[in-house]
Design a protein around this nucleic acid. Sequence first.
DNA 1: ACTGAAAACAATTGCGA
DNA 2: TCGCAATTGTTTTCAGT
Lengths: 165, 165
Amino acid sequence: MNYRGGAKQYDRIDARIMEVVQKNNRLTSDVIGDQVGLSATACQRRLKRLRSEGIIESDVSIVSAEAIGRPIQMLVLVTLERERIDIIDKFKKKIKSSPEITTGFYITGDADFLLYITARSMKDYEEFTRRFFYENQHIKSVKTMVVVDRVKAGFALPVDLPHEN
Amino acid sequence: MNYRGGAKQYDRIDARIMEVVQKNNRLTSDVIGDQVGLSATACQRRLKRLRSEGIIESDVSIVSAEAIGRPIQMLVLVTLERERIDIIDKFKKKIKSSPEITTGFYITGDADFLLYITARSMKDYEEFTRRFFYENQHIKSVKTMVVVDRVKAGFALPVDLPHEN
DNA sequence: ACTGAAAACAATTGCGA
DNA sequence: TCGCAATTGTTTTCAGT
């Protein structure tokens, strides 16, 4: 999607609505409307548009890692042997198909990928890495960082107005 | 919350429900029920319990970083000069109060923190880092990695059964 | 603990401003 | 684009199994 097309994407009120639903998307339109000074109807219409235009990408439940018995959280920097497109694409597919990997970033800098991984226990994590990393031929190096504390959770973004408005 | 209390937390069907709502929490109970082989009512009751017990932590909208004009995404490893509790706590507070920082992890390993930061442009990012990092006295080093591609988004976890069941 | 029907509640659509 | 009122659809409650 190209967001540079001249048409305006969202206004100040939309931004406020997004601030609210990024924290909680199960509030009724009535409640959201109260918070942004709009009727439930108007609020709902805006939300519908924001969703259909992909400005709101998706709506999801966040499950507690601890509650489902995955208290171990790791951040892993992975460097591949070479930066060849086919190797990178294959690695991306592996990431997507591995449920243990919650989030994966393809990056530039010291490493090629950063992975966010959860596990039931250290033993489980080690088993997974053995399987995942040592079975993959093109990994040059792996650097594991143990997550002690998630200071800020989620992907909430600071929705201010686009500069052109 | 302590999840080690003997009582069972969730069963196979709950796990399937969570798999569904982690992808999309706006489906009607009727649809979710279909997918897990349950009536809308039963499904609803389970969701209510999962939420009230904190197994489902929260329900949020995910906003597209590109759509709101924040195409620049960075991962930043920060090392503090000393690992003193008060310095760490102060830094955590700074993270929480900075809207540019979407996610912050306190970690062990090569660095003390990993930050996920979005920005409108490289210029904006540089301005932010100057402000944030160079104004903070206790930072020893900063290593920036540019995000080229988010291979896997969100915090969706692999909900299988707890081992004791 | 589940289902199904009825009641309560929320979202959506049509219309006038 | 808004708000209001009417319609449609979803969730919740309640009785029965």
